[in-house]
């Protein structure tokens, strides 16, 4: 049996969760204020995932960068390959919140979307 303390990252409460587990079976869990904490620990034990946010070059807007994020968390180990794809992308103004920049990035079932309205500079 293993025991480990997790800091839940789902919300700003950041619950400290004590877990005893074997493989991906949780025997005892303490410290989570809600059931999302349990889901988080289960996910961390089997397949840790994160969403990431970054920016993409944009032409014709007031600023040279447009902010983007993923629509769904991706496996932690794929973060840097996704960053590579994001860094290769570019946009042309105007763009709006929710516009898809890269559909199904790296085949991970998550899209890269625009998070800032940027109008075309006249």
């Amino acid at each position: 049996m293993n025991s480990r303390t997790f800091t839940c990252i789902i919300c700003p409460n950041g619950c400290e969760i004590q877990v005893s587990y074997e493989g991906d079976k949780i025997h005892e869990i303490n410290g989570n204020k809600c059931k999302k904490g349990l889901q988080y620990v289960e996910q961390e034990l089997t397949d840790p995932r994160r969403t990431i946010a970054s920016s993409v070059r944009i032409k014709g807007a007031e600023l040279p960068l447009c902010s983007v994020r993923l629509t769904k968390p991706i496996p932690k180990k794929d973060i840097f390959s996704v960053m590579e794809k994001i860094n290769q992308a570019d946009l042309t103004a105007p763009v709006h919140i929710g516009d898809v920049v890269i559909k199904n990035v790296c085949g991970l079932d998550s899209d890269v979307i625009v998070t800032k309205d940027m109008e075309r500079l006249q």
Partner: peptide, 16 residues
Amino acid sequence: IHDGFGLTRFGETLSG
């Protein structure tokens, strides 16, 4: 540009 904003005010996680 990171996410994590809005959980209390809007019940969902948004970027700044």
